[in-house]
Design a protein around this nucleic acid. Structure first.
Length: 824
DNA sequence: TGAGCATCTGTTTTT
DNA sequence: CAGATGCTCA
């Protein structure tokens, strides 16, 4: 596509070898001065140091993004590198976009040609470009974890492997782990104990999985990295081209890289032999000014940034040794330590330091701030998850009232399941919020269906996509027909798609045969629209989408359905159409494959919208790299943080502690730690204990609004009476030992349980006060807060909000439509 | 073929 | 509790 390199007079290669501060012309100093503005001495070194390898140990909030962007800007500004010679790897696409923006702002000019992206995006870009050598079509599909699961499920079923204890989940975890170590089925088989039937079976599963993906011309997330490494290893000339191109490689969040990613970086930073350099020169790829005395091209200069205290992705294969042994890996590497924190108050940092110091086996590092102690950390022990949520909602409102914008607040939790209680209460309390990640837009069934149509058009070999939409919308092709097609394809060694075109030969009923043929030609017709030879011109993404939706009747089917949920699904699809139009506008040259790539690689944190005036809810993992004025860290309980599942794993509790540490250090001014004494899980209510990590925070840093002790003491204050109802577990918490959730407080009738009472449904759908109108002066009764007086009503239509002064529970905001209230 | 109902099972974090 | 699976019946 584009040239890999600015052909005219590439700058010198000296950058990677000679530590310079000043260019001979002296120009650097002048321009760089502004780039160094406001940096502390360590940060300056991190920006200015030049050499083959630099490790920046950047504590939380130590301004590493700023350092990284200035470093990139200074490389370009000083003409040590063209933008196209820089490869910067970030953790999320959002971080990449932000970095690009900031570099551009610093340079005041286009920094086009820089590769700033995630590992995965960079690899896709390389693999699509080199598809032929990699043995793939340039239109290869990218399988996400659910695609992997579906594929494995079929394999396991076919092999009857579930009897040996295999599930899609555990098989995919194991395969992923191996791929992160750059192992494949064959290399694994060589070392496996093949007298163990389970091992034999696993090898077979792995083999079939690999085969299916290859047949479908698909790669999973792990393959994207691994295949790129294999590509470089198998084709030294290809590797040489990229080594020649990327003279400066920067990797953020290095502590979370796994072995495959590490290997990729190693491949990219190797020198190019004199012979290969000459080959390139002969092909017109200029190398003269990159060569050293021997004619070789020295390895690219590598900068990595990380903090081993924030390593939280071991479960994904992240190897903390990549960073802890960096100096051994890259002898002569310069190490810079950034410890001064510009984000949080000292109280927050002291808590963070205290917690993390309980991890042994780490280099001691103490974050400090020049900004003073700040507010104390607020602790709260709730009676239940709902009570905790109510505390969060109340505090959010209080902060909002005193001037903190909603967008500057965030609520963190360990597991996605915890959002339920939080959402329910936040909706009722009319707090504008947004769940970051979680069930993502693209994971919705109807969107996956629409996507599968696009994938089937782009990559005819992708059997998975094809089978997903074979009978969506219903066209009378059931499982029987599906398998018939499958065995027909296998018997004749043709693709599934081709089998569909040849459906007449299957001898099925005329009706079914007709639908198959019609479906097949629908897809073929759509594919024709993308053919560059097509005289009508190549269709863009939204045109293709509109075409398949219309022809298949997917959207109209949903619109005409009488299932009320289908209305929302239709809206989602319309939203999806709108997104493809946006994509067309923003990427006039972008084709269908580009769109699908983008969709496959969006991360949870990517869709964070800074402009939105809403509170952000997210997992602790998603929170990495972000910061907020006020942070609510919820569910600080044994079993949740640290999570039960981590207990058995080596290094588990230490990693959970780092997770807690990451959460704490996101907070700039205020930090709230909350826990619940009982938590509803899987329909059960369990008694929870305060997290061990709480005790690691010096007591004087926390001000408990309700301490674990207070909440335990019998008849303790109950400032939030949420536990009063809800099928009984309210008064029952005193009965320790757990499990007795059916305790009915004496005096209450044996709960006839009205059907709308089932709590954990998004309230907006269950409870509906309809046309209930309230005005100032009305008295109301609330299920949890008791009686109160309406002071004011604001908002319109379904978003009307009552501001209520309760007799015993204080002032609250309530979303009238969904709040559990009645007029009295 | 597919809709509707009963049972069972899993229960972390994510590119 | 939610999602998946398996069963029966139209």
């Amino acid at each position: 596509m584009t040239t890999l390199f600015d052909p005219d007079s590439p700058p010198t290669n000296q950058a990677s070898a000679v530590p310079i501060i000043l260019d001979s012309s002296g120009q650097l100093l002048g321009d760089d001065a502004s780039l160094l503005d406001g940096l502390n001495p360590q940060q300056r070194i991190a920006v200015e140091y030049r050499g083959p390898a630099l490790l920046i140990i950047a504590g939380a909030g130590s301004g590493k993004t700023s350092v990284l962007t200035r470093r990139v800007a200074s490389l370009i500004d000083s003409r040590e590198a063209w933008p196209s010679q820089i490869l910067a790897i970030t953790f999320t696409n959002k971080a990449a976009a932000e970095m690009r923006e900031r570099v551009q702002a610093l340079l005041g000019q286009g920094a086009n040609g820089m590769w700033i992206s995630t590992f995965h995006s960079s690899c896709v870009r390389i693999l699509r470009r080199e598809a032929e050598k990699a043995g793939l079509g340039a239109n290869f599909s990218i399988y996400d974890s659910s695609d992997t699961r579906v594929t494995l499920k079929r394999i396991i079923k076919g092999l009857d492997a579930d009897s040996l204890g295999f599930t899609p989940a555990n098989a995919s975890a194991k395969i992923s782990k191996l791929k992160n170590e750059l192992a494949d089925a064959d290399s694994y088989a060589r070392n496996a104990n093949m007298s163990d039937p389970q091992e034999v079976m696993f090898v077979e599963i792995f083999r079939q999985y690999t085969r299916r993906l290859r047949d479908a011309s698909a790669l999973d997330f792990d393959d994207l990295i691994g295949e790129t490494v294999y590509l470089f290893r198998a084709f030294p000339d290809v590797a040489a081209r990229y080594r020649r191109q990327f003279r400066h490689i920067l990797v953020d969040e290095y502590q979370d890289t796994n072995h495959a990613q590490y290997s990729l970086i190693r491949e990219l930073t190797r020198p190019v032999t004199a012979a290969l350099a000459e080959d390139m020169e002969a092909q017109g790829l200029h190398v003269r000014n990159l060569q050293d005395a021997t004619g070789a091209i020295p390895g690219a200069s590598l900068t990595v940034v990380g903090d081993s205290d924030q390593s939280i992705y071991a479960f994904r294969g992240a190897d903390i040794r990549n960073i802890s042994e960096f100096e051994r890996d890259f002898p002569g590497a310069k190490v810079v330590l950034l410890e001064q924190n510009y984000r949080s108050t000292q109280n927050i940092l002291s808590a963070a330091n205290a917690v993390i110091s309980h991890n042994f086996d780490r280099k001691d590092k103490k974050l400090w701030s020049a900004d003073g102690p700040g507010e104390k950390i607020v602790g709260y022990t709730a009676y239940s998850g709902h009570d905790e949520a109510q505390f969060v909602a109340d505090e959010i409102e209080a902060l909002h009232a005193t001037g903190t914008a909603y967008r500057d607040m965030a609520v963190f939790y360990r597991t996605n399941a915890q959002t339920r209680a939080l959402e329910e209460i936040l909706v009722r309390a009319a707090v504008p919020y947004r769940v970051v990640g979680g069930t993502k837009f693209y994971e919705r069934a109807e969107i996956k269906d629409a996507l599968a149509y696009l994938i089937a058009v782009a990559n005819p070999a992708d059997e998975l996509a094809l089978r997903r939409i074979l009978n969506t919308p219903k066209r009378g092709i059931g499982p029987t027909t599906e398998t018939a097609l499958l065995s027909f394809a296998e018997a004749n060694e043709i693709s599934y798609r081709q089998a569909m075109r040849d459906a007449t030969a299957l001898g099925l009923g005329p009706k079914v045969t007709g639908s198959i043929l019609q479906f097949a030609s629908l897809l073929d017709e759509a594919a024709l629209k993308l053919d560059p030879e097509n005289p009508a011109g190549v269709a863009n993404v939204s045109e293709v989408l509109t075409f398949v939706l219309e022809q298949s009747g997917l959207l109209t089917g949903l619109r005409n359905s009488r299932d009320p949920q289908d209305e929302a699904r239709a809206e989602n699809i319309e939203e999806f159409i709108a997104q493809t139009k946006d994509f067309n506008r923003e990427n006039p040259d972008g084709g269908l494959v580009d769109f699908l790539t983008q969709v496959s690689l969006v991360a949870a944190a990517d869709d964070l919208d800074d402009e939105s005036g809403t509170v952000s809810l997210m997992t602790l993992h998603t929170a990495k790299g972000l910061e907020y004025d006020a942070v609510f860290l919820t569910g600080v309980e044994e079993g949740l943080l640290p999570h039960q599942m981590s207990a058995g794993e080596p290094g588990g509790p230490a990693e959970e502690r780092r997770l807690f540490y990451v959460g704490i250090t996101r907070a700039k001014k205020r930090l709230y730690l909350s826990l619940a004494m009982t938590r509803a899980q899987f329909g059960d209510v369990n008694v929870a204990m305060p997290s061990r990590y709480l005790q690691e925070i010096p007591a004087e840093l926390i001000e408990w609004k309700q301490s674990p002790g207070m909440a335990n003491s019998r008849g303790g204050t109950q400032p939030r009476a949420l536990n009063a109802r809800r099928d009984g577990y309210g008064g029952g918490f005193n009965a320790r030992g757990g499990g007795n959730r059916t305790d009915i407080p004496p005096g209450l009738p044996p709960a006839p349980k009205p059907k709308t009472e089932w709590a954990n449904r998004i309230t907006a759908q269950v409870r509906d006060n309809g046309d209930l109108t309230l005005e100032a002066g009305d008295r109301i009764r609330h299920v949890d807060f008791g009686d109160g007086r309406v002071n004011q009503v604001t908002g319109e239509g379904t978003k009307r909000i009552a501001h209520v002064q309760f007799d015993t529970s204080g002032a609250k905001k309530l979303l009238i439509k969904v709040a559990p209230i009645e007029k009295i």
